[in-house]
Design a protein around this nucleic acid. Sequence first.
DNA 1: TATTGTTATACTCTATAACTATA
DNA 2: TATAGTTATAGAGTATAACAATA
Lengths: 150, 150
Amino acid sequence: MAAQPQGPADRLVLGLAWHGAIANTRMRAALGLTGLMPRHVMTLRWLADGPVSQKELIERLEVDPSVLVALLNDLEDGGLLQRRRDPADRRRHIVEITDSGRAALDTTDAALDELEAELFADLTASDLAALRRILGRLRSSAEHFECQEG
Amino acid sequence: MAAQPQGPADRLVLGLAWHGAIANTRMRAALGLTGLMPRHVMTLRWLADGPVSQKELIERLEVDPSVLVALLNDLEDGGLLQRRRDPADRRRHIVEITDSGRAALDTTDAALDELEAELFADLTASDLAALRRILGRLRSSAEHFECQEG
DNA sequence: TATTGTTATACTCTATAACTATA
DNA sequence: TATAGTTATAGAGTATAACAATA
């Protein structure tokens, strides 16, 4: 084999970071018109199931508390979610998606569908299934921290 | 199926960005002792084959010229590469990896081997092969821009 | 005293634009 | 006039730490 190392591709962890960064950039562009960023979308997706506390969102999104506050402020200002005090523990804020928030999620889903169609244009259906399965089996940092704590 | 959407996993492009960001963070930690960042490593990897101009590195790494200058300054200060003028066109800088640079690449390779072993601990050999193949077939932004230009 | 959330601040990374030197 | 590279500056994104309110 002639020397043809280079690029990120032959080093899996570099390739993953590389294409992840591209995916992120492309999402920002695709979501541009909605005024939302990928993390706003992820936040709304976590809320789609039902109300959760900010503490819980911090763990799920793995962001700094101050970052979450900024994200929620954006979304609440846009009317996409509501914060209310938890009567059982008034320190807690319970965060709940609104109808506008669900509508926004529909819009972003459509935009992401288009983006995925383009980004994954050269992949077969079984490639997509494999990628989904493999990503699901990657160690996330949350899991890693659990190991350290346990 | 009960509602269990949430997280990044069920939206492929979000999952890719998510795990890519984790890979990047973990690489920074793994490379911490070497003082290099993932992009330094990628730069050295592109140089491993032979000397290239800065212009060429800008295209391969898809970074802003000013970003590349900073990267190369770091690496040159550490003695990991050398810049010299191209006699044929004195505007050009030819960038060449040094022996120290190759040694640093060996060190980082070992660190990344360890990281990959941990990050991909739950993947089989065929999973790894599939991931490598799939990443190679993803549309990169460079390819995308070529389409727009052509 | 510990926890939830917020604010203020500083730091890093990146992007923009102006500049030098060659062609 | 255009190109390769550099520098300086401003902006966004993130992390740190101090703060207020509950428990």
